[in-house]
Design a protein around this nucleic acid. Sequence first.
RNA 1: GCCCGUGUAGCUCAGUCGGCAGAGCACUUCCUUGGUAAGGAAGAGGCCGUCGGUUCGAUUCCGACCGCGGGCUCCA
Length: 640
Amino acid sequence: MATVVLPSGELVEVRGGDLLAVLTERGETAAAVVVDGQLRDLRDPLPPAGEARVVGLDHPAALDVLRHTASHILAHAVTRLYPGAKLAIGPAIDDGFYYDFRFPEPVNRDDLPRIEAEMRKIIAENLPIARVWLGRAEAEALLAERGEVYKLELLREIPDEQISFYRQGEFLDLCRGPHLPATGLARHVALLDVAGAYWRGDPSRDMLTRIYGTAFPTAEALAEHLKWREEARKRDHRILGPALDLFSIQNETIGAGLVLWHPKGARVRHEIETFWKGEHYNAGYQLVASPHIGRARLWETSGHLDFYKDGMYAPMDIEGQEFYLKPMNCPFHIAIYKTHTRSYRDLPIRYAELGTVYRFERSGVLHGLLRVRGFTQDDAHIICRPDQIEDEVLACLDLTLRILGAFGFRDYKVALSVRDPEHRERYIGSDAMWDEAEQSLVAALERKGLPHTRMEGEAVFYGPKIDLHVLDSLKRAWQLTTIQFDFNEPERFDMAYIGDDGQAHRPYMVHRALLGSLERFFGILIEHYGGAFPAWLAPVQAVVLPVTEAEVPYAEGVTNELRAAGIRAEAWTKERKTLRWLIREAQVQKVPYMLVCGAREAAGGVVAVRLRTGEDLGPQPVSAVVSRIRDAVSSRGTAL
RNA sequence: GCCCGUGUAGCUCAGUCGGCAGAGCACUUCCUUGGUAAGGAAGAGGCCGUCGGUUCGAUUCCGACCGCGGGCUCCA
């Protein structure tokens, strides 16, 4: 006898542990039951004691169960349609599920509707889903008979003697569960994509075919998700970038992963850089600049030729000396530091640079602006005393939030990466340094009120770090900021400062990038704003549109006035086009302000203002337009 | 690198079951003087990704290569 809490909050007594029977009797449907914090099947025998809470399909905890069951329905459909297909794994993932198969024939996106139709049949059949326990030998014989080589491999790694399988109709799959009680509950499913995936992510093993899908408790939630995907697709910076004439990547002429910034993209970049530089000077940074190549000995000293050679391009021979294209800026900044003997009074020193680096990335991973081979980091190195590190990290976070906030990023997720406690020998630097650095990171995050997730073993070998992810307007997370301690290079370059004791001491060095790289950040910004940049970033802020040729001189005069006021304005007068055409063109180009000049406006010394939003502000004096745009620019907001 | 898909005009895409290559947009010229998301006409524009094979003949069929897109552990 057990007491169970229903989704409604009602309590029921369950005898003999058959919870599903009780629910069926009451005419209730549910997804699973949480017993002592653990999700379990409704069909599992209930423990005599302990808190049990039934969760409905719409409960967040049930989402994974729903999607896991959907992945089984997918596998079921595949085994019906493709006899001989081998099953691998099929987990629920962040916003859906996938299942990996080895198909007897190639399967592509065009096959998805057919598979999805079969899934709908299985859902309509509303097959009960039941757990089946098999002994190890029995399980092995079963899987061997079916030729399920991947499942056999998984089975060998399961320590238990009783092996859990799930059955729905004629389909049986090795699975730890839990699952929904019947296939009919997974009604709102969709298959999305097909892709290749290595068995266990290992490039030396079989290439499987992965089918991605998603499932939601309601038709509305599914429709909303599909709409969201569509919206994300429309914002793809690789489409918008060339369409808005912002940038191009030309593999044949320039090279893969190398970006050409067109005038409009370069203008946005200029605005970002100008803002960035100002904020850095205000925050006590000194801007420096360094070359694109350096001698091999520099990279030997830094250690990059030891641990980063795979990411570097081949050396070039210059008058018998080997030079390398730089993958990072740090050695140059350190070299600047070392040009003087530094006193403890000089610290902290903060060197910042928009430094362009080149890194080798395999062609398959290149992706628009988000993964490139040549990019400009918004890099800085903070060199300081141990007693300064916490304040420095805090100041860094302040600067980060101020700068990211200006771009409309106000939701953050922070990860703190620390050593793997099991393998301290893999890391450089003393325990005391690691502890001190980690404490400063945690203290700074706490003082800033930023919750963080601690990631054991995620630190790089040379120091702990904070990574900051932002959520964009579609709630997608992008990793931008990284703040990391470096215990390696100060040692290798023998960096020092003279303390108040007259002795040389090793400084701490913090390596940080706030935006990451300008290329990647620009790509993210394009998607965040869907190409419709706020007034302060818009490459063209206003276009002046004459209605007829007679107003061209007036339009040019207005344009000059705007330009004199520091507004990026263009008169669209080169060619006689209808106003309708000009407006459409301005909308497509996502220009924030459209200033129409017809006979009426010219006579009255005003312009008719149309916003990118479609809003018509009617006739306005040019001075009013100027102050409106100036306000929008100085607020850095999205309001026009 | 690997799996699947894909490559035709500057862009978006038709098409050729093997026989001189098509549209819309953009571009050039002309007509139109227009009021808030495309006014009309004409013209120009092509190594049909590259190399090889089959064939009287290949953009089309076959093979290799190159480029691009999706993806490559969030473990039964």
